[in-house]
């Protein structure tokens, strides 16, 4: 690992200015994804800008919407009983990230900004219509998560932009299910996030675990009718998902295996969502 300079600015403005000034600077939140990449030489910054002094370890409820500060450790998110009750899909997705000790440092902002193709959080953020609040040299802006994640390890963030927080506009019955070769320390072959929006009265279905990025499956979502879709509706949704999803083969799974997993997980996640008491 090439030596870098570590700086920890005291304010958001100073952090943005530091990122802007130093070519080849990278922000550091929990570091659980960045440090292995530094070790492997996949990134080689001259300066690393720690966000540890920024006031972003926050969890703010307004009615049934939630704003999660970018540097809040994931373990704090899962420990909040309201998160578990009102966003069961998010709770399940957070629990799918690494181990407890890793989640004491890993953050929602870091997971989004690093945009790993197998991120466990991006599918559920898609299903919840999350909005990413970004600050940077041009000021603040809000980007829907679907427009924020551009591809594998690619996002809408400019070089001096930072994620400040992530907004979840409404509590939704939801579920997140995944399949892995080894549950505790592998990434998913396929993952499915499902959520029902009480205000829009429609469903969101998102697939993860398949490179290059998590995607919304709108055909599968449209096939789910009403808050309690019947078995026929769930079956049609699973069939449409298998047809519309862009699946690939890699060392973790063949394309055909992924197709079958997708349908199975989608049906189970939908039934789990229906079983959730309205928040």
């Amino acid at each position: 690992m090439a030596p870098f300079e570590l700086v920890a600015p005291e304010s958001v403005d100073a952090a943005v200015a530091t990122l802007r000034a130093a070519g080849g600077a990278l922000p550091l939140a929990g570091g659980t994804d960045l440090l292995p990449d530094l070790d492997a030489g996949r990134v080689d910054p001259r300066r690393v800008v720690s966000l540890r002094r920024l006031p972003w370890r926050t969890l703010d409820w307004t009615g049934d919407s939630l704003v999660v500060g970018a540097t809040l450790p994931l373990r704090r998110l899962e420990a909040d009983p309201d998160v578990r009750r009102r966003f069961p899909g998010l709770y399940a997705a957070v629990r799918a990230v690494g181990s407890v000790a890793l989640r004491h440092r890993a953050t929602l902002g870091g997971n989004l900004a690093r945009a790993a193709p197998a991120s466990d959080l991006i599918p559920v953020l898609l299903a919840l219509d999350a909005e990413v609040e970004v600050v940077g040299p041009a000021g603040a802006r809000t980007v829907p998560v679907d427009a924020f994640v551009l591809g594998s390890r690619r996002t809408d963030l400019g070089p001096a932009d930072l994620i400040r927080s992530v907004r979840l506009p409404e509590s939704r019955p939801s579920a997140y299910l995944w399949q892995r070769v080894r549950p505790s320390n592998d990434i998913s072959q396929v993952a499915v996030a499902v959520a029902y929006s009480p205000s829009r009265r429609d469903w969101r279905v998102a697939m993860g675990g398949v490179p290059p990025r998590a995607t919304l499956l709108s055909g599968a979502a449209d096939a789910l009718e009403g808050p309690r879709p019947d078995d026929g509706s769930i079956r049609r949704s699973a069939e449409r998902a298998a047809r519309e999803a862009a699946l690939v083969a890699d060392k973790r799974a063949s394309e055909e295996y992924r197709r079958r997993l997708l349908g199975t997980l989608l049906a189970r996640a939908t039934r789990a969502t229906v079983a959730v008491e309205a928040p």
Binding site: S50, V100, A101
Partner: peptide
């Protein structure tokens, strides 16, 4: 609980 291999000492 913290993974000391994934934590910078200065952090």
């Amino acid at each position: 609980t913290t993974l000391s291999c994934l934590t910078l000492a200065r952090e």
